[in-house]
Each structure stands twice: as structure tokens, then as C-alpha cells.
């Protein structure tokens, strides 16, 4: 299956605040994109637009499978998303969260799948504890489990290593490597080190400089 993720002239403004303009990219299986920029430069905004959580003010994002465009309503089938502002249900256990997600997604024979991802993020022994009682690092791990549950083609990580210990950071790098074998990886981060996870980089600050220069001209 050939998957193509295309961004065309994406512009986003909140009211009068223009966050970014004319963002272009094209990603296929095996490619990866890092989004850099300082606080408030619009990294999270851009990944939300790519995942379909926000609409761009103009321009578009296209998902293509074997040349066929995917309806925006079905994007969720292809996306795995990890971000600090993604919250889990804290009145449920880690296992229940994954079970709920699997059922909502309509996954078949999910028990083995859940066991697999829980082991991957090293939470299997704590699977029956309420998420309310998880540490922030454990919650971050559970988010990875949620994101990987349906083997997404596009994996989007916003601040991938926040709250994680060194072993967790290694886990993230391993997941990123694994993802790049067949899928698409998109990472939004402040850490220069993490930009190395990806082959290409969009720097929103430099883009802004360019925009300013164009206006001056």
C-alpha cells in the first residue's frame, strides 16, 4: 500500500493572529518530518491540522492511499497521535482505556494487541491500576500505547519525550525507528536532539523570517 500525505499552502490564523503561512510538504511511506520552532511558533497547531483536529484557514492536507484521496472523516483510521494536551480517562484503568479505544475503533481480536502494546511501553504490570493513579511519565507511556494500538500509518508525536525517563526516551527512539520502516513519522519538538529522529525538518521560525522579508519587499 502506497500512502501519501500532502500539505499544500497551509495557512492558519486565530482571529487576527497569523500563526504560519504557506507550509508545503509531501510524505510517503518511510519518510519522516520534524517540525521545529520556539514556544508559540505553531508546532502543535500544525500537527493538529495534519491530524485533522483543526481546520486550516486556507490550503489543505491530503491523505492518499494508492492515489485515491481519503475522506477527512476517515483520517482517524490512519493516524496515531501523542501529545501533552491529549488526555486519557482517569476513572478507568490503563487496560480499560485501551479496551475502550479498541472498541470505539472497531478493532477485531484486540486482547492480544493490547497486551502487545502494553508490553511495548512497559506498563503491562500496571495495567489494572486506575489512570488517576499513574505518574505523568506512565500516562505518557499509555498515550503511546493508545497511539500504536491500531498500527497507524502516520504517527504524530508532539513533544515526544515530555515526562519520560531515559529508558522511556530510548523506547520513543525505538518506536520512531520502527515507524519509519513502513509508515510516516511526524515529530514536533523543542529539543534539537529529537530533530534527528527525522529526515526532513520544517523550521517555523525561519519560515516566519521569510514571510517578514516578503512583506518588506
Amino acid at each position: 500500500m502506497e500512502f501519501r500525505l500532502i500539505g499544500k499552502d497551509i495557512r492558519k490564523s486565530f482571529g487576527r493572529l497569523l500563526v504560519f503561512d504557506s507550509i508545503n510538504f509531501e510524505l510517503i511511506n518511510g519518510s519522516s518530518l520534524a517540525i521545529a520552532g520556539k514556544n508559540g511558533s505553531g508546532k502543535s497547531t500544525l500537527v493538529k491540522i495534519i491530524a485533522g483536529l483543526l481546520s486550516p484557514s486556507s490550503g489543505e492536507v491530503i491523505y492518499q492511499v494508492d492515489g485515491r484521496e481519503i475522506d477527512k472523516l476517515d483520517w482517524f483510521k490512519f493516524v496515531g497521535f501523542v501529545a501533552p494536551y491529549l488526555q486519557l480517562y482517569d476513572e478507568f484503568t490503563g487496560y480499560e482505556n485501551l479496551e475502550i479505544l479498541a472498541k470505539i475503533r472497531g478493532l477485531k481480536s484486540y486482547e492480544a494487541k493490547i497486551k502487545n502494546v502494553l508490553e511495548r511501553v512497559n506498563l503491562y504490570s500496571r495495567r489494572d491500576d486506575l489512570v488517576r493513579g499513574y505518574s505523568s511519565g506512565m500516562k505518557q507511556r499509555l498515550k503511546y500505547a493508545c497511539a500504536l494500538l491500531h498500527d497507524p500509518i502516520v504517527l504524530i508525536l508532539d513533544e515526544p519525550t515530555s515526562n519520560l525517563d531515559s529508558e522511556g526516551v530510548e523506547m520513543v527512539w525505538a518506536i520512531a525507528e520502527e515507524q519509519k520502516k513502513n509508515g510516516i513519522l511526524i515529530v514536533a519538538t523543542n529539543e534539537p536532539e529529537e530533530l534527528k529522529m527525522c529526515d526532513e525538518v520544517i523550521n517555523l521560525d525561519e519560515l516566519k523570517l521569510k514571510m517578514k522579508r516578503q512583506i518588506v519587499k
Binding site: L53, D74, F76, F81, L86, Q87, Y89, I104, C146
Partner: peptide
């Protein structure tokens, strides 16, 4: 209030 909206937005269609 709890910010779990994104969890659902990422999991399924709005009509569901």
C-alpha cells in the same frame, strides 16, 4: 473540561 475530546476525535467519526 477534562480535555478528553481529542481522545474521541482521534478515535472515530463525529457522528458516532
Amino acid at each position: 473540561d477534562r480535555g478528553t475530546v481529542i481522545f474521541l476525535q482521534l478515535a472515530t467519526r463525529p457522528s458516532v
